[in-house]
């Protein structure tokens, strides 16, 4: 990071932003180009009230999509040019891709469960209540899994941490913030 700072000619808020590998820029700009054309196509299908184009709901989406096409073409052209120069160079690094996918995939199933499962069992302690529902159970499962993989401790320790944290969140959100838990 220190060296990056010294090399940079323009200071930016997002330190990771800038040129990517030409092939990545090429793919991303192609995807944005397709998205822009699709938005224009969908916008043209929208109704034009009073036959006045100047106030049509599709006006801004069309303007934005057209300018997106021009901007993306700039990146596309630059990356194409760079690709032809760097043809022989390969920046491909072998990394552990599987570990990168664990978190998003686990998160997908966690949210899927939260949105699909619906049950609730309430326990009362004087004026306070604890909701046993999908949030509590799925959070314990997700956290135990992620902690076991990334924290690398014994399964029991991971489970205890997950249990305590999930109970704490469920209890505070329900009783102190008065926010119902998802799925309950």
């Amino acid at each position: 990071m220190r060296d990056d700072f010294k090399k940079k000619s323009y200071i930016s808020e997002d330190e990771g932003a800038g040129y990517a590998a030409p092939i990545i820029d090429l793919i991303s700009s192609s995807a944005i180009l397709i998205l822009s054309f699709w938005i224009i196509y969908e916008s043209l299908k929208l109704k034009i009230p009073d036959n006045n184009i100047l106030t049509a709901p599709a006006l801004l989406p069309v303007i934005i999509s057209i300018s997106l096409i021009f901007m993306t073409l700039g990146i596309f052209y630059k990356s194409l040019k760079k690709l032809s120069i760097n043809k022989t160079k390969s920046n491909h690094k072998e990394t552990d891709h599987l570990i990168k996918f664990i978190c998003p995939v686990a998160l997908f199933f966690y949210i899927f469960g939260l949105t699909k499962l619906k049950f609730s069992h309430k326990l009362y302690f004087s004026n306070y209540q604890l909701d046993f529902g999908p949030f509590l159970i799925l959070t314990i499962i997700l956290l135990t899994l992620l902690l076991y993989i990334f924290w690398k401790q014994k399964l029991l320790s991971c489970f205890v941490v997950s249990l305590v944290w999930s109970l704490f969140l469920s209890f505070t959100f329900t009783n102190f913030f008065n926010i119902p838990l998802p799925g309950n």
Partner: peptide
């Protein structure tokens, strides 16, 4: 946010 490549 992207000093050297504002277009992004």
């Amino acid at each position: 946010c992207s000093g050297e490549l504002p277009i992004k």
